[in-house]
Amino acid sequence: MSNESDSQVVVEAKSLDLTFQTNDGPVQALKDVNLTINKGDFVSFIGPSGCGKTTFLRVLAALEHPTGGTVTVNGMSPDEARRKRAYGYVFQAAGLYPWRTIAKNIRLPLEIMGFSKAEQEKRVKDVLQLVDLEGFGDKHPWQLSGGMQQRASIARALAFDADILLMDEPFGALDEIVRDHLNEQLLELWARTGKTIAFVTHSIPEAVYLSTKIVVMSPRPGRITDVIESPLPKERPLDIRDSREFLEVAHRVREGLRAGHAYD
């Protein structure tokens, strides 16, 4: 392995295991997961409930700790990476504080990380622009639609300039039309910022449309059944979803899900 390709690796998981101890006995959430994510990748994790896709994301964020194997983020342990602010995390719900305005919500991580007042001001302005929410900084969350709230939460995750964006079904609670729009915006944002994005989803079209790499997972125990490198170009208008390549990739994802006996 050359030095150059080495520096490109952002996430590396090797024979990762994670077993939860529950009242009903041990549950193997992740079994022998091996995965490499390179800088600038857009990786989607797709699979039915219980396949461990969210758990894997949480391991990367050091919210869960593996019981076996190794995982590195930017060459560090997830804990260290967190301390170095390596990633921003976007949850399924926007989780904005109702007592803070949008701007102040975005400022929250900046306050915690000790940015100067002037720097906070500047960054809030920048990310609001990035997610197309200029002029909404002084509104309270309840004054915004669900889609706008989720965009604000993405802005919050972007505010401190982490290289990695971990997104756990960020658009899962939104309707299809809003979702399409946000998918388009997210791709644009990804192209503009060059972030590495790990994205958990239930939706096959969403995964295929967004990703450069699709990780298909299956449950009991949670494991990877297929990793698909997308042949689609980086430039993706919405109607690419009618193209032959797109349908082929979607087909392969579906096959992968079926192979995992996901719907037994």
Binding site: A61, A62, L63, Y89, G95, I112, M113
Partner: peptide, 12 residues
């Protein structure tokens, strides 16, 4: 839990 997790990701 989600709000506490969010703060954890900021290393608050």
């Amino acid at each position: 839990m989600m709000q506490l997790d969010l703060l954890a990701t900021y290393h608050a």
